[in-house]
Computed example of a mutant assay.
Amino acid sequence: MDSSSEASSMAQGLRIVRLVADREKWGRRLLGVSQLAAELEMEQSRVSRLTQELCELGLLERVERGPFRTGPRFFGLAAALNTGWVRESRSELEALVASFGLRARVSVREGFRVILLRASSNDAVPGSFVKPGMVTPVWCTGSGRALLWDHGTPAVEALLEGVNFIGVGGPGAAHSPQEVAELLDRDRARGFILAEEEFEHGVYELAVPVRRADGSILAALSVLGGRAEIESGTDDIAAALTAAGQRLGSNDGRARENDGRKGLAG
């Protein structure tokens, strides 16, 4: 299992979906394989393979080898991102920015990948890759380890078995499942994740898990900044993140309760 190549494929697939959705949204001419490849500066054979997979997933659709348009599952995912706790996360992220001046993110996990759902307004510059859908490794990011909070050593080893750690992450990155498990043990003792230059040189990330009402992990909430910014207010930042995570988790619970009531009413 080559984690870096899978993450790259997911990122490129998301770029394709984003381009198709944007052109459809603004009423621009829809594109086929060759036009998508040219627009995204990708190999045509790779675009062909990825669009086929995206169609199989229902994120794109294509009628009789015509141009691509967004598929039915895309709209289901888009609707999910505008309900409940994900919608509420925007105000929580901006509140963290206002309090600490740090970049803030909310992320979820898919296997050994972390997927960014939402980032604060100060977390990207024009041309940045920091956008919803961005994929990072679970083992060398603060948000990733927050999402693994409940994983014991055997579960971490099983999840990361065969992962290629070489050349991934910053100077503080773990290089084996055992190192990831040891960092988790260290962080659980203090109640939050602190990743010191694990993904990028010079970047510190403080993160906590967001839990559902049943205690299971829903997402990760994190802030990023320089060493001095994080270390000067670690306890206050961790407390603010924990409180924000509790609010988001309770919002998810209320959304599920409302959905259940709608189902009974139907």
Score class of each variant (00 low, 15 high):
210 V>S: 01
210 V>Q: 02
91 S>P: 03
262 K>T: 00
67 P>Q: 08
117 L>E: 06
244 A>Q: 02
254 R>M: 07
186 R>I: 00
265 A>Y: 14
29 R>C: 00
173 A>R: 11
32 G>S: 07
229 E>G: 08
130 V>I: 15
149 W>V: 02
108 V>C: 11
227 R>N: 11
203 V>I: 14
70 T>N: 00
45 S>M: 09
244 A>C: 02
36 L>R: 06
176 S>I: 03
29 R>K: 15
14 L>P: 03
44 Q>W: 08
128 S>W: 12
57 L>Y: 12
118 R>E: 15
114 V>D: 07
217 I>Q: 06
87 R>G: 08
204 Y>K: 01
48 S>F: 14
41 E>S: 15
184 L>R: 04
233 G>E: 09
37 A>C: 12
186 R>S: 07
7 A>E: 09
164 N>R: 12
155 A>P: 02
193 I>C: 04
180 V>S: 01
52 Q>E: 14
24 E>H: 10
15 R>M: 11
236 D>Q: 11
243 A>L: 13
78 A>P: 02
55 C>T: 13
112 F>T: 05
179 E>R: 04
266 G>R: 15
48 S>D: 12
266 G>D: 00
236 D>N: 08
191 G>M: 08
228 A>N: 10
6 E>T: 06
94 E>C: 10
33 V>A: 08
86 V>C: 00
98 A>R: 15
68 F>C: 01
208 V>Q: 04
152 G>V: 01
102 L>Q: 06
37 A>T: 06
140 C>A: 14
240 A>T: 05
92 E>A: 15
16 I>G: 03
103 R>P: 03
169 G>P: 01
100 F>R: 02
122 N>F: 05
156 V>E: 04
237 I>A: 01
177 P>E: 03
67 P>N: 10
161 E>Q: 14
55 C>W: 00
263 G>M: 00
193 I>D: 00
157 E>A: 11
117 L>T: 02
65 R>Y: 00
252 D>Q: 13
227 R>G: 11
168 V>C: 03
138 V>D: 04
192 F>L: 04
106 V>G: 02
27 G>I: 09
139 W>S: 02
120 S>H: 10
146 A>N: 03
110 E>H: 15
201 H>K: 15
203 V>W: 06
166 I>E: 15
131 K>A: 12
6 E>C: 07
262 K>C: 00
114 V>P: 04
129 F>R: 14
26 W>T: 13
86 V>N: 04
27 G>E: 07
126 P>S: 13
85 W>S: 05
256 R>S: 03
7 A>Y: 09
121 S>M: 10
180 V>K: 03
71 G>A: 10
82 N>F: 09
234 T>H: 13
68 F>E: 02
234 T>K: 15
98 A>F: 06
185 D>N: 00
1 M>P: 14
29 R>I: 07
